[in-house]
Each structure stands twice: as C-alpha cells, then as structure tokens.
Amino acid sequence: MDTLEQDIKILIIEVLNLEDISGEDIASDMPLFGEGLGLDSIDALELGIAMKKTYGIELEAGDGRIREHFRNVLSLAALVRHQGKGSLTHTP
C-alpha cells in the first residue's frame, strides 16, 4: 500500500469523523462524493482546508480541475506529489 494514499485515507477519516470506517474500507479509486464513499459539499470544503493545512497544496476557487483532484484518493495523492510541499504530517 502506498504510504501517501494511506495517509490521505486516515486524514479523510479523522477530519470528516467517519464513524466505523477504516482505511481498508476506502479503495484508492473509490469515488469520494455521491456514489462511493457518499461525502457531501461540506465535506469537500472541510477536506480542502485539511489538504491545504497538511500538504501545503494551493487550491484556487476558480480552478476547474478541483473536481478532478477530489475525485478519489489516487487523484488527491497525484495532486500532492505534483504540487505539495511534501508529506508534513497528517495530524488535522
């Protein structure tokens, strides 16, 4: 298992208070929103803030690719590798 992907899964679970869900329950290619994990728009904002805080990534409100970046754990990991300032810590 990719460490960064695993860290992002733990971040999602902790920041969004996902009760009774563990990292193994989230497949890296599982859609996070709507069908799949079932997260909503408040989660999207909350997760965006946590990703900025933890990995130092920059997200611009008008960026049309945000939806792509937040599709699943794989795309979030790709965003961090591409743009992030390294894996700082996953403490929310």
Partner: peptide
C-alpha cells in the same frame, strides 16, 4: 485560521 465548514453549518 480558516473556519471549519462543519462547525459553521
């Protein structure tokens, strides 16, 4: 710091 949307809502 940025405000938590969950807390706000």
């Amino acid at each position: 710091e940025e405000l938590s949307p969950t807390l706000f809502s």
